[in-house]
């Protein structure tokens, strides 16, 4: 059976990829959502941001936000499979059971990579530029995908624990204050002191700031706190810490579904 692990993982990934072709509208909407946010903040709200080049500040933040919101996409897809009994069927056939979650994560990473490419293109269109070398840019992309990977396993765990569409909605709502309680849209230096500190410790802020630094985009203050001055380190540690918690929890939860 172990001989089939790789083919089973690929079969499960292909299943998800077939969805793209089957529901092109949904695939477009999934990518369009961060684009819409980008347009909203650049053109509707960005005009009111009287500090330097807001677009150069915002676009890397949107990259990080999109990766973090991937939690929701993963949770929705897995919850649907759980509720439709599809997971039960997978569990009752002689396939490599690890392929269910591995296939999910392979697909979600591919999808996120595609939406990142689209978002980079959109960023360039609205006037964002990177001012560093290829190595730094590659490192920035690596950090973004690392955050997505951590959020993916958090999403898998949430779906396995909650497993109900109502709770997906709760997560979809709660994710917003977390998104704004960060440096994605504005500098923590402009927030009340304690809030600014909390916002700087947000994992999304660490990635956003690290990516800004790596792309050579403005970071706007903060800098004086430990979290602010060690953003790149935190952008590695935070996702690894989240993975260290959620990966084993998710795997254990899946294996224990029959208990």
């Amino acid at each position: 059976m172990t001989a089939h692990v790789l083919t089973d993982c690929w079969t499960m990934t292909r299943r998800e990829l077939a969805h793209w072709q089957r529901r092109p509208v949904q695939a477009v909407v999934a990518v369009a959502f961060p684009l819409m946010m980008l347009v909203m903040f650049v053109y509707f709200i960005g005009g009111g941001m009287r500090v330097g080049n807001y677009r150069e500040f915002l676009v890397p933040g949107m990259f990080a936000l999109t990766m973090a919101f991937g939690l929701e996409a993963t949770m929705v897809a897995l919850t649907q499979d759980l509720n439709r009994g599809v997971i039960d069927r997978f569990r009752s056939i002689p396939m490599a059971q690890s392929a269910v979650l591995v296939g999910r994560s392979l697909h979600d990473m591919l999808e996120s990579a595609v939406s990142l490419v689209v978002l980079v293109g959109a960023g360039l269109l609205v006037g964002w530029r990177w001012h560093s070398g290829l190595v730094e840019a590659a490192a920035a992309v690596g950090l973004l995908l690392l955050l997505r990977f951590a959020m993916l396993w958090a999403g898998i765990y949430c779906a396995l624990v909650a497993g109900r569409p109502e709770l997906v909605q709760a997560v979809q709502i709660l994710i917003w204050p977390v998104a704004f309680f960060s440096n994605v849209f504005s500098s923590p230096a402009t927030m009340p002191t304690w809030m600014g500190h909390v916002a700087e410790w947000n994992p999304m802020s660490a990635t956003a700031r690290a990516v800004r630094e790596l792309f050579g985009n403005p970071v706007w203050g903060g800098g004086d706190s430990w979290a602010g001055s060690h953003a790149t380190l935190l952008a590695v540690l935070w996702p690894l810490a989240l993975l260290a918690v959620f990966f084993p929890l998710a795997v254990r939860k899946y294996a224990a579904m029959g208990k």
Partner: peptide
Amino acid sequence: LLGQHAAVDEELSGRQNLEMFGRLYH
């Protein structure tokens, strides 16, 4: 196993579903 819900992938065609399960049976 035929559970209480029809446990097939709603977005795929019948043929795609069966081929997927066939591949999972190796």
